[in-house]
Design a binder for these strands. Structure first.
Length: 311
DNA sequence: CGACAATGTGTAA
DNA sequence: TACACCTTGTCGA
């Protein structure tokens, strides 16, 4: 469910609250028992994300690789020190739930994580907090070489723009990732709507950002890549980087601008946060034409047939 | 309380 | 293109 912005927030959260400490790693559900044994008792060095993939690097050269897929989620909790270090603030969304006590209230001493509820694939427990993973598509203990191979299958991530965290792209060259994306789009017969969902073309974009960026750029979703100029493709990258960076900051996907909000003094409710995503049949916020919906490559595609007409 | 969709991907047909 | 994966929220009966 989460798109790339959520995974980058999770990486930051793991780095904040667990890096540098030894972790008890277990699989209450049992499906990850062998992998948990390979990680149990080792120290987390750092956490990073590329696209929708999360990598937790341990000191002995093993990596916990997690992809949340359609409905995976992490739950976090811990004592006051854990919560003080936590970078996931008040607004929490799918994929990053924090379930400790109330904020600002006297917290009880940390007595260890609660009894696992439901199908907890993996539990990480540190000195001050814990994290439970459920429902992930991928949860594997792999080597650093295997982690590098995963990165090699992914395209550039707009949240590594321009400085990548841990990617195959060169450091310190502005716009390298942007130019890489442009080259992966130009000349293609594939519709731009499909290209934006292809993690080899751009890593981290999902169905919401796909629809919203195409609207913001007023692009017909079915235009093939080869119908775009380098300038237009570059603007897609820049806008994606901008709205996804906002998503990292806000913990939500908000692609509308304050001019479209009924209350401009605070972030908008969900009903005002998107231009077209899940607004099928409702009037376009710009021109009033009903938002269209089509099944496209097994995913719902939303767009305004007037604003995004290429004719 | 059951059916169904959901911010996703891999594999088989 | 279809389905499996395997969890949660929403909606209707």
């Amino acid at each position: 469910m989460p798109e790339g912005h959520s995974i980058h927030r999770l990486a930051r959260q793991f780095g904040d609250v667990f890096a540098g400490g030894r972790l008890a790693v277990s699989s209450p559900q049992g499906r990850f028992a062998a992998g948990a044994a390979l990680l149990n008792g080792h120290t987390l060095v750092n956490a990073d994300a590329h696209g929708k993939h999360l990598f937790l690097h341990f000191e002995h050269g093993m990596v916990l690789h997690v992809h949340l897929g359609l409905y995976g989620a992490w739950d976090f909790g811990g004592d006051g020190e854990f919560r003080g270090a936590s970078s996931i603030g008040a607004p929490r969304r799918v994929g990053e739930r924090e379930v400790a006590g109330e904020t600002g209230v006297d917290l009880p001493a940390y007595a260890g994580p609660p009894a696992p509820v439901g199908a907890v694939r993996v539990r990480l427990a540190g000195e001050h907090g814990w994290a439970d993973l459920r429902g992930a598509t991928t949860c594997a203990a792999i080597t650093e070489d295997e982690a590098a191979a995963v990165l090699g299958r992914l395209g550039p991530d707009p949240l590594h723009n321009p400085g990548p965290l841990r990617t195959p792209y060169p450091l310190n060259e502005a716009n390298v990732n942007r130019e890489d994306f442009v080259q992966r789009v130009l000349g293609r017969r594939t519709p731009v709507a499909t290209l934006l969902m292809d993690q080899k073309v751009i890593a981290g974009v999902g169905n919401v950002y796909r629809a919203e960026v195409l609207f913001r750029q007023r692009l017909d979703p079915l235009l093939p890549g080869r119908a775009l100029t380098a300038a237009v493709a570059g603007r897609i990258w820049d806008d994606t980087a901008a709205v996804m960076s906002d998503g990292v900051r806000d913990g939500r996907i908000i692609t509308t601008t304050p001019g479209f909000w009924s209350d401009k003094t605070s972030l908008p409710p969900t009903e005002e946060a998107h231009f077209v995503y899940r607004r099928h049949g409702q009037p376009c916020r710009v021109c009033g034409t009903p938002v269209a919906l089509a099944e496209h490559a097994a995913r719902k595609l939303y767009w305004c047939p007037l604003c995004q007409s290429s004719a």
